[in-house]
Amino acid sequence: MKPQRKKRLTLILFLVAGVGIAVGLLMYSLSQNINLFITPTQMADGEAPVGRTIRAGGLVVVGSVERDSESLGAKFKVTDGNAEVTIVYDGILPDLFREGQGIVAMGQLNTDGVFVASEVLAKHDENYMPPEVQDALEKAHVDGKQSLEAARY
């Protein structure tokens, strides 16, 4: 390779590596702000600010959903496998909302440690399967899936 070209190639490699390192460090230092939501464990550890709008995420605990018969209001718990947080929400829940499903809620943590949500989004996982397969899986292990999915959070 001609020395001129070698020089230019080295310059380009340094440019790409330099930008990579700079952006990598930036991302690392900002990682808490890039996270879309806060996990129930972080809330239990007191990392979540009270009274400020934040997002909370986790799996809806099976058997925890209580719907108000008079209004749209719903109360449920979400978990990440370690800690749980209670969420109250007055609005239309997404179609995919169900027990055991991952959700992301936007709202505020009040002083009682209850998360008052103004928006609830369903989080989808990376598994795709036909309904028959899901039925067979459920028969095989009814509660195995919840703990398996909880491990991902």
Binding site: M27, S31, L36, K123, H124, E126
Partner: peptide, 11 residues
């Protein structure tokens, strides 16, 4: 993988 996102991980 690095951050909590609404988008699911790779299938």
């Amino acid at each position: 993988e690095w951050w909590n996102t609404l988008h699911q991980p790779a299938t």
